[in-house]
Nucleic acid binder design. Structure first.
Ligand code: MN
Ligand code: MN
Ligand code: MN
Ligand code: MN
Lengths: 218, 218
DNA sequence: AAATATTTTTAGACAAATCTAAATTTTATT
DNA sequence: AATAAAATTTAGATTTGTCTAAAAATATTT
């Protein structure tokens, strides 16, 4: 039996360690989970005992294959629920994360696989992140951050790195959505802001925005 | 803040006390929750401290108005999720209860109200039980158990008292569903079994079945 | 009404997840 | 290489929900 808390730690370790690739520090986990380092140490030991993580004192932690599988499954559930909330229940993309944070812990294979089918097997969540399939497979999109775009080139918006409500609301108010096609009109060296063309209008976005919006060449 | 465990106790007290009307005993709660009487006493004290229940030592417990409101809200969520699972995710009516037991604790007003709208404001769950609206209002159907039916009269099946998987599967295998119309052909005094006519066929159901199936005169 | 049985509560302990404060190890700086 | 700083772990408490065993209150029999 795996507890809700254990699941949240495993997911945090997975994300912090670049999809389970790198070792993760105690303090990084503590910050992500909004808890204290001592609590993290205790939990890491437990995850290690239960074979979800490899851990050597003072050396950080990595997920085992079993741990990665758990993480991917929670992420699958999280993202499918987000799609459901947006597509079927009229949530906006800045409202879904918090609710999905709870729904992701509901344990029923049938529930999640039927939900997947009901949503017609979506490949991406409302923020552009890939949704793993039943077996845990998923592909990354070949995307870059807007900050690294080339002058004059044409891109499509495909994801966000920052899923905070304030950033998503900023995009909404500027009518930038996933799928929007943009042209790079000017890259300002002084403050790294970027002027982009969007359908009928041109807007200037800050470096901050440019670093958190993923685009793909079209 | 109300915990998941507190919610489950409140719901149990509500159901055991006939929708919050009667006093409920410690042992009855212990049996329903599959826990020990001593644990129940502790929890009752807490619910009383938090003003969800009225409690006098050795005298049993009743829900306060606040407690009843909490109970009705959990029941609303439970039953809406059951409808969702059957209508949208192709669950059968004997599979939904267990999953709904978990989904009922997800805390989001918007989620449940949008789900209600998405399902087009259903009035009954898959077992024929009424679904409270946003304000907590709901009506009972004017129903009786099949055991109390009159010879020769025509009834419609409108609900079940026993939602156990085995009973529901029994009904499925005998093609008895909510909405089925039946005629009472014979009431056997010896073992209280009842012969009923259903569309094209006649079957005999035991007293056990007759006591757990709700019907309404048509 | 006294004795017995049943129900309920209390006392004390335990596991899970957290915290603070102190101790230890590792890393960075002089 | 020694010292200072930062990160991590340990020790000991706390809260929530549970348990067993014993005590107390209530209900049932005789
Ligand atoms: Mn999310
Ligand atoms: Mn979560
Ligand atoms: Mn149910
Ligand atoms: Mn429940």
């Amino acid at each position: 039996m795996i507890t809700l808390t254990e699941e949240n730690y495993i997911k945090a370790i997975y994300h912090l360690g670049n999809n389970g690739a790198n070792t993760v520090n105690t303090n990084a986990i503590a910050e992500a989970m909004e808890t204290k380092a001592s609590s993290v140490t205790d939990m890491i030991k437990k995850l290690s005992d239960k074979n979800y993580a490899d851990y050597k004192k003072y050396q950080g932690v990595t997920l085992t294959e079993e741990g990665k599988f758990v993480a991917i499954n929670i992420i699958r559930k999280h993202r499918l629920w987000e799609v459901f909330l947006v597509e079927k229940l009229n949530f906006s993309w800045d409202e879904v994360h918090e609710v999905a944070e709870h729904l992701e812990h509901i344990k029923s294979e049938k529930l999640i696989n039927q939900l997947d089918a009901f949503l017609e097997f979506p490949k991406h969540d409302p923020h552009g992140d890939p949704i793993p399939d039943k077996e845990g497979n998923f592909q990354y999109i070949d995307k870059i951050i807007l900050a690294k775009s080339e002058l004059g080139a044409v891109y499509k918006c495909v994801g966000v790195d920052d899923s905070s409500s304030s950033f998503l609301k900023y995009l909404d108010s500027n009518k930038i959505a996933l799928g929007s096609v943009i042209t790079i009109k000017h890259k300002e060296p002084y403050d790294n802001s970027i002027k982009i063309e969007l359908e009928d209008r041109e807007i200037v976005v800050s470096q901050n925005v440019a670093k958190n919006l993923y685009v793909k060449k079209v």
